[in-house]
């Protein structure tokens, strides 16, 4: 029964316990949010309306849907905004509202001249600028806040690192790139697409570095962190992690884009595998997080 590395489930043994409050639907919410913000911001930059629309749908519909699905008492969801002074969840929620609100306004003006149509050229133009700034700023926040929320948890070495928000942004951008490449194929200028392919290649490298640094940090952080890394690299989650997150999510698209970045089929394949890898990553960082054994007095007293 004495097992140093015991994961103890719901038993009354001292040992490591799985994080089990943030589940797959929470992962889906994170995924939608980050993908949506990344796609929107890139589309905004490249004046690509369809991308903006899809990005807003992910962040404004997908994310709330999955988040509510996860929430214990969804009818009280609005209460989540009450403590922006201290809670990243509140900040993020407010950020999303601003992001979606400003993003929609921006898109409507961009596509239909909506703001100038109502407010006239000058005022409408001003609002357009405001919407641009707010949607951009809120978009960045939305990309990053979940990373901040996780980094804030001192429970899990895997999460409790400044790399968490960076990984959120990195993945958000990568996912955004993958999506805009697919959605914008043909619509965007070929050289833009080419540039985006290269950018994606760079981001995949960044993602790989960030993920590896995360694991490295966790491994050397706490014993629980080491166990989490073991779970991802050697344990029950090794197959999805190495297979989906690293091979399918990073290596495969990098190879495909590098060798055949000019073919739509290749880009489509790369994008699908990037998103699959990203989603798996989101799920696995939840699943592999372990609470440390609450206490151990073994070394102190021989006879208790």
């Amino acid at each position: 029964m004495a097992n140093e590395n015991q994961i103890v489930g719901d038993t009354f043994k001292v040992g490591y316990r799985f994080q089990r409050y943030w589940d797959t639907s929470m992962a889906a919410a994170f995924f939608c949010c980050e993908l949506g913000a990344g796609l929107f911001l890139l589309s905004q930059y490249f004046d690509f309306a369809l991308g903006m629309l899809v990005g807003l749908l992910f962040a404004g519909v997908g994310k709330p849907y999955f988040h509510l699905a996860h929430m214990g008492v969804p009818s009280r969801a609005w209460r989540a905004m009450l403590r922006p002074d201290r809670s990243w969840i509140s900040r993020g929620l407010i950020g999303i509202m601003f992001f979606v609100g400003a993003g929609v306004a921006y898109l409507l003006e961009f596509q239909f001249g909506f703001l100038t149509g109502i407010f006239g050229e000058a005022t409408g133009g001003f609002f357009y600028q405001v919407a641009l700034v707010i949607s951009f700023a809120a978009g960045v926040l939305v990309m990053a806040y979940q990373g901040f929320a996780m980094a804030h948890s001192s429970s899990f070495a895997l999460w409790n690192t400044g790399l968490m928000p960076i990984s959120s942004i990195a993945y958000a951008v990568t996912a955004g790139l993958a999506s805009i490449l697919v959605l914008g194929w043909g619509a965007l200028a070929p050289e833009t697409s080419k540039m985006l392919v290269n950018f994606t290649l760079v981001m995949l490298l960044v993602d790989l570095c960030v993920v590896m640094s995360l694991l490295h940090g966790a491994f050397h952080g706490t014993t629980g962190g080491r166990q989490s890394v073991d779970l991802l690299l050697k344990g029950v989650y090794a197959t999805p992690f190495i297979g989906l997150v690293i091979a399918v999510g990073i290596a495969l698209p990098a190879l495909v884009l590098w060798l055949a970045g000019s073919s739509y089929a290749a880009v489509l394949l790369a994008a699908v595998s990037i998103l699959a890898g990203f989603f798996t990553y989101r799920v696995l960082v939840f699943k592999a997080a372990l609470y440390e054994p609450i206490i151990s007095f073994k070394p102190r007293t021989a006879n208790i």
Partner: peptide, 12 residues
């Protein structure tokens, strides 16, 4: 069941 206790919605 207890040793592999599943979390809410997630499987562990």
């Amino acid at each position: 069941e207890l040793e592999t206790k599943k979390g809410k919605g997630g499987q562990h």
